[in-house]
Simulated scan of single mutants.
Amino acid sequence: MENKIALITGATRGIGLAVAETLGREGYKVILNGLLEDEGQKVVTDLKNNGIDAELYICDVTDEKAVDKMVNEIGTKYGHIDTVINNAGGLGGREKFEGMTTEFYRRVMALNLDSTLFVTRAAIPYLKNSKNLPSIINYTSIAAYNGGGPGAGVYSAAKGAVLTMTRSMAKELIAYGIRVNAISPGTIDTAFHSATNKDIMESWKSGIAIGRFGESKEVADIISFLVSEKASYLVGEVIQINGGQAYL
């Protein structure tokens, strides 16, 4: 069987890096996308030192042409892509709707929604070439269901759109044997929340049934399941990973 190729966007830190580590240990060649060359190369070196076959591509996933170039280079080099993890995303800061700049709105939508479309669209021809149960994992968020925290309204809207897009993609792409699913993380302990006051973050724990924040590895393990044969009958599904945060 040919080597399994996983493309993971925004993979040089946080959840994306945990996914790369997990899939890498399971035999995937992991292709990490990031923005910073020095940071990315250090991460790839660390992965290789731990026996993981890893490669780095520097690319801004909000740049349509750059994404096409990156994905086509990967697809041409390996002939196929087996798994696409659309991990790149973020708050982009916090702004209330009143006084929100159009530039901020477009930046947040581009980072979370446009990137998902650009990477997926470019990868489809190479996913069709996969013989390893090809799949796509998108990232929505608990914010897509509850409207998000203060100043995160546009982020929640973008993640709501990703949720709907996931189901549309799933219906369209299953005809080619490509499964599309999504995860919906709650509050995961990563640098993602660096723009949030620490005292405010601590107060959020009272709203999480399990009483703590999630860990990146816990998200990565669910993704590992979703791309595996164990999840071969899951199509268009959204898995909540929030420690019961949605139920209090």
Results as ranks from 00 to 15, higher is better:
Ala157Asn: 12
Val119Ile: 14
Leu7Glu: 06
Leu127Asp: 00
Leu23Trp: 07
Ile208Val: 11
Ala123Val: 04
Glu218Val: 14
Asp60Asn: 15
Asp46Ala: 08
Leu248His: 15
Leu127His: 01
Val235Leu: 15
Val238Leu: 11
Arg25Ile: 00
Ile136Phe: 02
Val235Thr: 13
Tyr247Ser: 10
Thr12Trp: 03
Asn86Cys: 11
Gly243Arg: 03
Lys42Ser: 09
Lys230Asp: 02
Ile15Tyr: 02
Ala195Asn: 11
Glu39Tyr: 13
Glu73Ile: 05
Leu23Gln: 02
Gly75Thr: 01
Val162Gly: 00
Glu215Asn: 14
Asp68Ser: 13
Gly34Val: 09
His193Lys: 08
Leu163Phe: 12
Leu56Ser: 03
Asn129Gln: 13
Ala191Gln: 15
Ile183Leu: 03
Leu7Trp: 07
Gly40Ala: 05
Met169Cys: 04
Val67Gly: 02
Ala220Val: 04
Ala175Ser: 14
Met100Ser: 06
Glu103Ser: 13
Leu17Ala: 15
Asp53Ser: 08
Ser232Gln: 11
Tyr57Cys: 12
Gly207Thr: 03
Asn50His: 13
Thr102Asp: 14
Phe213Ala: 04
Ser224Pro: 15
Tyr145Gln: 12
Asp53Val: 08
Thr196Ser: 13
Arg13Tyr: 02
Ile136Trp: 06
Val238Glu: 09
Ala158Phe: 05
Leu7Ala: 09
Glu95Lys: 07
Trp204Cys: 12
Phe192Pro: 01
Phe213Leu: 12
Lys48Gly: 04
Glu2Val: 03
Ala209Gly: 01
Thr120Arg: 09
Glu202Asp: 02
Asn242Thr: 06
Ile15Glu: 08
Gly153Ala: 14
Thr120Asp: 11
Glu21Phe: 07
Lys77Glu: 10
Val227Ser: 02
Ala182Trp: 10
Val30Gly: 01
Ile58Val: 14
Gly24Met: 04
Arg94Met: 12
Gly16Cys: 10
Thr196Asp: 11
Lys171Cys: 13
Phe225Lys: 10
Arg107Thr: 03
Met109Phe: 09
Gly10Arg: 09
Gly51Asp: 06
Thr190His: 05
Ile137Thr: 06
Gly24Pro: 00
Gly147Ile: 05
Gly34Asn: 04
Ile58Met: 08
Gly40Arg: 01
Lys96Ser: 11
Leu111Asp: 00
Glu215Tyr: 15
Met201Lys: 10
Phe97Gly: 06
Arg121Met: 07
Ile31Asp: 03
Val61Cys: 09
Glu172Lys: 10
Gly89Cys: 10
Glu215Pro: 05
Leu163Trp: 02
Val162Asn: 01
Arg121Trp: 11
Gly207Trp: 09
Leu117Ser: 10
Val61Ala: 06
Ile239Ala: 07
Ile85Gly: 00
Gly79Lys: 15
Ile188Gly: 02
Gln240Gly: 07
Glu229Leu: 11
Ala152Gln: 09
Ile142Phe: 00
Tyr126Thr: 01
